[in-house]
Design a protein around this nucleic acid. Structure first.
Lengths: 226, 226
DNA sequence: AATTGTATAATTGTATACAATTATTAAAAT
DNA sequence: ATTTTAATAATTGTATACAATTATACAATT
C-alpha cells in the first residue's frame, strides 16, 4: 500500500463533466448555443467517449438538452424556470435551516459568526466578485449541521443552476449588503434555537435573491428590444 | 414527409436507460447488489457503449453508485433516505396541489372525480397490485394543472425513487383504502378552490404514505434478526 | 424565382479494440 | 500457518472505426 490517504483516481470523464458544467455555469457556453461533440472534445482535450458520458450526466441535470434532430444545445434561461428553482430552494433550504437550528451547538454558532464576518470583510475590501461562492459557504455549513444528506444532494444540483442564473445576470452590488443582513438574521434565529424562525428567515432570504434575479432578467430582456 | 406525427427515434441508450431503471425499481436488481457491465450488456442485449451512457444517467440519479474501486452497485434503501425523499415530495407536491387549486377549471374537477372512481373500482375488483401506478395518474393530472414544469421534472425523479421503495416493501392493502380517502379529500379542497387546504391535504397524504412505508421497512428489518 | 431531388458532407450512435486498473490465484518466503 | 510476491484473470476506462442519421450544397425541374 502506498499511503493512508486513498485519493480517488481522477477520471477523464469526471474531469470533463466538471469542466463542461463550469463552462455552462460561467456562460462561456451560452444559453441556447448549439454545441458539437467534436469541437467540445477538441476544446477539452479528450476523445468523444468520456465526453459523451459527461454529456449524459449534464443532460440528466438539464444543463444540456437534446433537440429532436439529435443536436445538442445549452439549456435556456427562462424566468419561469428561475422562479421555480428558487421556490424549491426556499422550501428545501428553509427546512435545512430549521433542522440546523434544532441541532446547533455553541461551537456551530461561533463558526457561523466568524464566517459571516469574513464574507462581509471580503466584500468591503473590494474583492467581492465571488460573493456568491462565499455566501454558499454559509449555506454549506448549515447543510452539514442539518444532517439531511438527500436534501443536500438535491439542493446542490439546484444550486448549480441558481449559480448559473446569478452569473448570467451578473448579480452583485447592493444585493450583497442585503444578503449580509439576511444571513445575520438567519444566524440570530439559529442562535436562539428558534426553528420556525430560522426556516422562515431562510425562505425569505432565498425569495429575496429570487426577486433580485428576476428584476435583472427583466432589465436584460427589456434592453434586448432593439 | 411521412406523417404529421414526428415520432422521435428510439435509441438504444435510451431504451437501455429505461429498462435498467425499471429493473432497479422492481428490485430485479436488488439494493446493494454489485453489477458488472459485461453481464448487464448481455442481459439487455446491447454493447457496452450505450449501456455505459445509461449508467451515467442512473448514477446521476443515484439509482447506481460507483464504489471507490470503480465497481458499480445498486443503491441501498435506507430509512433516512426514504424519509427525506418523502418529505421533499410532500413539500413539492403540496405546492403543486396549491397551484392546481388556483388553476382548476370545472372540467378538471370532473376529470379528477372520474379518475378517483376508476382507481377505487379497479381496487375493489381485485386487480389492485398496480394501485401505486393508478394513484400516480391522479398526481400527474394535478401536475399538469399546476403548470410548474420544473417542479414536475424534479418530482418525477423523486417519484421513481419513491416507487422503488413502495415496491421494495410491497406496500398495499389497507393503505390503499386510506389513500382513496385522502385523494377524495384533496379533490374536495381543489373543488372548493381552497389553495392552502389543498396544499395541506396533499402534504398529509404523502406523509401518511411515508408512515406506512417506514412501518413496513421496520417490520422487514425486525424480521431480519435471525 | 421557387421547389424538388440527389449527392456530399457533417454529425451523432454504436461496436469493438486496446489500455489501465483492480481482483484473484497460487507459489514462495517467513 | 501466515504473509508476501508474482502472475493471471477480470473489470473498468478510453480511443477509434464504422454505421446511421441529419444537414448542406447544388443541379434539375416546374
Amino acid at each position: 500500500m502506498d499511503s493512508s490517504v486513498m485519493r480517488t483516481r481522477r477520471l477523464s470523464k469526471d474531469n470533463t463533466y466538471f469542466a463542461l458544467k463550469q463552462k455552462i455555469i460561467d456562460s462561456e457556453l451560452k444559453p441556447d448555443q448549439v454545441v458539437h461533440e467534436e469541437s467540445l472534445a477538441a476544446l477539452l482535450g479528450v476523445s468523444r467517449t468520456p465526453l459523451r458520458e459527461a454529456i449524459q450526466r449534464l443532460e440528466n441535470e438539464e444543463f444540456l438538452v437534446r433537440q429532436p434532430n439529435g443536436r445538442l444545445r445549452v439549456a435556456s434561461v427562462t424566468m419561469e424556470e428561475v422562479r421555480e428553482i428558487f421556490l424549491i430552494r426556499s422550501m428545501l433550504e428553509g427546512y435545512i435551516a430549521k433542522s440546523a437550528a434544532k441541532n446547533a451547538t455553541d461551537n456551530d454558532i461561533q463558526n457561523l459568526t466568524a464566517m459571516i464576518g469574513n464574507i462581509k470583510q471580503s466584500f468591503q475590501s473590494g474583492k467581492s466578485q465571488d460573493f456568491v461562492s462565499y455566501g454558499f459557504e454559509f449555506h454549506d455549513y448549515l447543510s452539514e449541521m442539518s444532517d439531511l444528506k438527500t436534501f443536500v444532494k438535491i439542493l446542490n444540483h439546484l444550486r448549480d443552476h441558481a449559480l448559473r442564473y446569478c452569473r448570467f445576470v451578473s448579480l452583485h452590488g447592493d444585493w450583497n449588503t442585503q444578503a449580509d443582513e439576511e444571513h445575520n438574521h438567519i444566524l440570530q434565529m439559529i442562535a436562539d434555537r428558534n426553528e420556525d424562525g430560522a426556516e422562515k428567515a431562510m425562505q425569505d432570504h432565498i425569495l429575496s435573491s429570487l426577486s433580485s434575479a428576476l428584476e435583472r432578467i427583466q432589465g436584460i430582456q427589456a434592453n434586448r428590444e432593439d
